[in-house]
Simulated assay, not measured.
Amino acid sequence: MMLKIPVLDLKGGIAVSGKSGQRETYTPLNTCYANSANPVEIAENLKLNGASEIYIADLDLIESKGHNINEIKMVNSILPVIFDGGVKDFDSYTFFLDYAYKIIVATETLESIDELKKIFNKYPKERIVISIDIKDNELYTKNLNLTLNEIKPILKELDPNEIILLDITGVGTNKGVNYELLNEFKEFKDKLIIAGGLNKDSIAELEKEGIKKVLIGTSLHSGEIAIL
């Protein structure tokens, strides 16, 4: 059975929503799981409706404009948090371990592959999730001089338990599965968590492809897709 992991993006202490990674245009989240955009209230109701873990991105931290770390810790006491706080290096990864269950190391913010290897050498794979961030079908990164093809041998070497394949261009669009990306990474199928623009039809389609986990944001909060 497909595991559907709810998504929350936090900015200024509240959950927000938007499209295609255009973060400056994000607005307070309107969700069927709460009467407000309070992340703690939303997490409590997600748990009541069957969620077993939750993905949270701290957009303020990722953009170095503040943080929502206290809200993250409160949510983590309700549901185990898979947390993207814009990890740059070994030290920032280590810091976030006190706040969440699993910490994401994303290509968008990672400073170097050497720092990624340090993290894998020190910490258990159960607490590390690599996020391959993609915009317009190309690797999205601020610091790494790598292509999508060039990151694959690194993934093989590190052998992570989980790899998020995040189609940033698809976020909030409900456009469905990006099969070009999925085919690009099909050798990692058993490790993949698919994210970005998924809709109701995507779940059955991805199950047929053998994908076991997805991140669901817009379609979940609108009520189009249920957790269970």
Rank of each mutant, 00 (worst) to 15 (best):
D114G: 09
L165E: 15
P160H: 10
I119T: 00
I154F: 11
K156C: 10
E115A: 02
P124V: 09
S131Y: 02
K142R: 14
I119N: 02
N121L: 02
N145Y: 09
I164R: 06
F120Q: 09
I113V: 12
K152A: 14
N174L: 15
E115M: 05
E108Q: 09
L148T: 07
R127Q: 03
N174R: 07
Y123S: 12
T109A: 11
E157F: 02
Y140F: 04
I163L: 14
I113R: 00
T147G: 14
E180L: 03
T109K: 10
K135M: 14
N137W: 03
G172S: 11
V177C: 04
K152I: 15
G172V: 09
G172E: 14
N145A: 07
T141P: 10
K156F: 09
T107L: 08
E108N: 03
D159S: 10
N161I: 14
P153R: 03
E150G: 11
D136H: 02
K152Q: 15
D133C: 07
N137S: 15
G170W: 06
I168C: 15
T169G: 15
I130T: 00
E162M: 15
L166I: 01
D159M: 01
V129K: 01
P153D: 15
F120P: 07
D167M: 08
I128H: 02
F120K: 08
I128F: 11
K175T: 12
L158C: 06
E108M: 00
N143W: 09
P153C: 15
T141V: 07
T109Q: 10
F120C: 13
L155M: 10
T107E: 13
N137V: 13
E108F: 06
N145I: 09
E111I: 07
L155A: 04
L148R: 04
L166N: 04
L155E: 13
K135F: 06
I113G: 05
L165Y: 13
K125M: 01
I119P: 00
K125W: 05
V177M: 07
S112A: 11
N174V: 11
I151P: 12
L116M: 06
I163D: 04
I119W: 00
I130W: 00
E162D: 13
R127K: 11
P160G: 04
S131Q: 03
T109M: 07
K135E: 14
T109N: 14
K156Y: 13
L144A: 09
K156M: 13
T107F: 14
L144M: 09
F120T: 08
K175Q: 10
D136N: 03
K118N: 01
L155R: 03
Y123I: 08
K122V: 00
K152R: 15
K125R: 07
R127P: 01
I119S: 00
